[in-house]
């Protein structure tokens, strides 16, 4: 059964049509990559999956519920199934690492403070940041921030994790460690994953299926192996990072 089903999704910002009839499904337990050039609407699409943006037309069904018809308070309940890692990590800069990671548990007040501290330490160990509980986000490097962001997304054991450009702005070594971490999270926790990226190494190492977003639509779909072997000029250029000769001439 499809965990997420996107049907004929359209979104405009002013005169610009960012998404122009997007259709795809995400199956339970799979790791899906959405790739595309900068500014093509990947992050906009990802935000629709969790209800941070509402479509102009079309629908986003999550576990059988249509997000497009829900108000913000109803969406809060659906979002408990999700964890999301933001491009900038989006840590709360006035809270410590422990307070960031344990945010949801601290707000719910269902667990005692020692139990929350234990869960925070456990999930920080998972992202290899044990012992950083007392640090503030400003004291962390870019890679560490992403790990804390992921720990925050994982602490309440979501069924699906969304990654918005997880390796953007990181050096190759740190990017590699983040890729390994995402792959480990997918394998260990058996969560459904949707990764928005333009880093083909992340695609190859982490995901099982790839969608290429181009001009507001899904242009191509397939496995990473099929994408790397594709003879389609657009797919080929994107996968191998080759600029369009027409654009170079301009």
């Amino acid at each position: 059964m499809a965990w997420i089903e996107v049907q004929n999704l359209r979104k405009r910002f002013g005169a610009q049509a960012v998404l122009d009839g997007v259709n795809f499904r995400v199956e339970s337990g799979e790791a899906l990559a959405i790739i595309g050039r900068s500014g093509c609407g990947k992050s906009v699409l990802l935000k629709h999956l969790i209800g941070l943006l509402q479509p102009d037309t079309g629908s986003v069904q999550v576990d059988g519920e249509n997000l497009a018809r829900m108000n913000e308070r109803a969406l809060l309940q659906v979002r408990r199934k999700f964890g999301m890692l933001f491009q900038s990590a989006a840590l709360f800069d006035s809270l410590s690492v422990a307070e960031n990671v344990g945010f949801v548990l601290l707000r719910e007040r269902k667990l005692s403070p020692p139990e929350i501290a234990h869960r925070v330490a456990e999930v920080l160990e998972l992202v290899e940041l044990g012992g950083t509980e007392g640090q503030m986000p400003a004291e962390l490097s870019g890679g560490m921030k992403k790990r804390v962001g992921l720990a925050r997304a994982l602490i309440y054991r979501p069924q699906i994790v969304l990654y918005d450009e997880p390796t953007t702005g990181l050096d190759p070594v740190v990017s590699d460690s983040i890729d390994q971490l995402i792959a480990r999270v997918c394998a260990q926790l058996k969560v459904t994953s949707v990764v928005v990226t333009h880093d083909m190494r992340t695609v190859r190492r982490v995901t099982q299926r790839v969608l290429l977003l181009h001009q507001g639509r899904i242009y191509a779909s397939g496995t990473p192996v099929e994408f790397f072997a594709s003879a389609d000029p657009l797919v080929n250029r994107f996968v191998h990072g080759i600029a369009d000769p027409k654009e170079v001439a301009l």
Partner: peptide, 17 residues
């Protein structure tokens, strides 16, 4: 600042209004 650094979106993803 929270809005432009996506902290408000992060709050919403953490099921917090």
């Amino acid at each position: 600042t929270m809005r432009v650094t996506e902290q408000i979106d992060a709050l919403r993803t953490l099921a917090t209004h």
